[in-house]
């Protein structure tokens, strides 16, 4: 034992030069990805759930609901469930932060010579990659049940880019939430209380025009609705049809959604970083 130990303290320690936050964040992100692989049950919000929603709503309600401008309900549904699933990405980040606080590995990271934003960058990167999983799975499921991309390649690429941008914004909210809420149970509680209404009072499953007064207004201004409608437009699928007295977001879903993405990022990022740091301080 002693022989091998000799190399541990040739106390003229060789110090390695830093290779940058991106390298370090990727090392921490790889850990996050291993976690996801080893706890597949925690991935259900990104795997089983969206696929089930597509199949259930597509087949169970498909016959009863008519898209506003006519056409296939299943095609209308896809944009909605894409938007809903991406909104849930918030919780992946929040949960990983809350879980790590519980098992104290954060102290290990903090005692290492890595940049200040590294650990957060790692969470963000891992959850960004995680968020692409349901997008791929839903695309396959959608194609299998008759959903088609009808507006050409360029618009399709724009649609997927918009989804990734939306995830990026959601991750900041997730960091903020994971830093403010102390326990994983708390995070789950908020997920249920906030995200379900936020994604249901929207054009996700039914056109807002069919909703009563206040709900309709909320749904029309809800960025999840406009993300869903943006995707529907970009994929060439049936979407909300604006009328003369539709509010601005319904008429211009894409700029409205992009505006939200920018606003969330600009407003949340500094708070999120600060809240995260403060949550680590004693």
């Amino acid at each position: 034992m002693t022989e091998t130990l000799e190399s541990t303290a040739d106390t003229g320690t060789t110090l390695h030069e830093p290779r940058g936050t991106l390298h370090d964040s990727w090392v921490i992100a790889r850990r996050g990805l291993i976690h996801m692989r080893r706890q597949p049950e925690q991935l259900s919000d990104a795997t089983i759930q969206p696929v089930m929603f597509v199949l259930m709503f597509g087949f169970v309600f498909g016959g009863a609901i008519k898209p506003p401008g006519g056409g296939s309900y299943r095609e209308f549904l896809m944009g909605g469930i894409f938007a809903q699933t991406l909104a849930f990405a918030t919780f992946g980040v929040a949960l990983s932060i809350a879980n790590d606080r519980k098992n104290e590995i954060v102290d290990r990271f903090r005692s290492l010579p890595i940049g200040r934003g590294t650990v957060l960058g790692g969470y963000a990167l891992a959850n960004f990659i995680k968020a692409t999983l349901p997008v791929v799975l839903m695309t396959i499921t959608g194609l299998a049940i008759g959903w088609r991309i009808r507006a050409g390649l360029v618009h399709a690429v724009e649609a997927y880019a918009l989804m990734l941008a939306f995830v990026f914004a959601m991750i900041w909210i997730g960091i903020l939430l994971g830093s403010l809420v102390q326990t994983p149970e708390g995070v789950n509680g908020i997920a249920f209380a906030v995200l379900f209404p936020a994604t249901f009072v929207a054009s996700t499953f039914v056109p807002p025009e069919s909703m009563p007064g206040v709900l309709r207004v909320v749904a029309q201004w809800n960025p999840i609705s406009t993300l869903a409608d943006s995707l529907r437009h970009l994929f060439g699928n049936p979407a909300s049809v604006p009328t003369a007295n539709s509010p601005w977001p319904v008429v211009h879903p894409i700029p409205y959604t992009v505006g939200w993405i920018v606003a969330i990022t600009v407003a949340c990022a500094p708070f999120a970083v600060r809240a995260y740091r403060r949550s680590l301080d004693d």
Partner: peptide
């Protein structure tokens, strides 16, 4: 409290920290 990652193997824990030490 031993701060190793519970879901990672012993080997993975060591490699991760090694890489964060810029090895």
């Amino acid at each position: 409290d031993a701060t190793v990652d519970h879901l990672l193997t012993g080997f993975e824990n060591l490699v991760m920290v090694g890489e964060l030490h810029q090895l």
